[in-house]
């Protein structure tokens, strides 16, 4: 259960970004999470509610996009999606695949904010 540490890092990063948008309110935070990043979305969502309380992120929506594991198959000379996390083999030629191109991401992609009107 390290989702709370992860969510705290998200709150810190977003708060830092908000310094450039005074008075803005966060509506949505969008993440890109690899299928092998070892985080559970339900736990993230649960911790998000707690960790954002009393911060500019309070009441915002956390959107998690899960990215499938993509490996490079040397034999097929292309990137392939493995059929399951229990077998790192190319779905076309069944050769073992070792070279990961996607699957461990743990990133904030973007945030959606409501900007305060600039005072004239």
């Amino acid at each position: 259960m390290h989702e709370l540490s992860i969510v705290s890092s998200i709150v810190d990063s977003v708060t830092e970004t908000l310094a450039s948008y005074p008075g803005a309110r966060v509506k949505e935070v969008r993440l890109r999470v690899g299928a092998l990043a070892s985080v559970i979305e339900d736990s993230l969502q649960f911790c998000y509610g707690i960790a954002t309380e009393g911060t500019p992120l309070e009441c915002s929506v956390l959107v998690v996009k899960i990215l499938p594991v993509r490996m490079h198959c040397d034999k097929c000379a292309q990137n392939v999606e493995i059929a399951s996390l229990q077998s790192f083999r190319c779905p076309h030629c069944d050769e073992p695949v070792m070279d990961m191109r996607q699957g461990r991401e743990l990133e904030i992609d973007s945030i959606e904010i409501d900007e305060a009107e600039k005072s004239v």
């Binding site: 890092s9 509506k27 743990l106 990133e107 904030i108 992609d109 945030i111 904010i113 900007e115 009107e117």
Partner: peptide, 14 residues
């Protein structure tokens, strides 16, 4: 109020 998308493209465990 105006809505804006801000790209972060940032590792959470940066």
């Amino acid at each position: 109020m105006s809505t804006r998308i801000v790209e972060l493209r940032q590792g959470i465990l940066k």
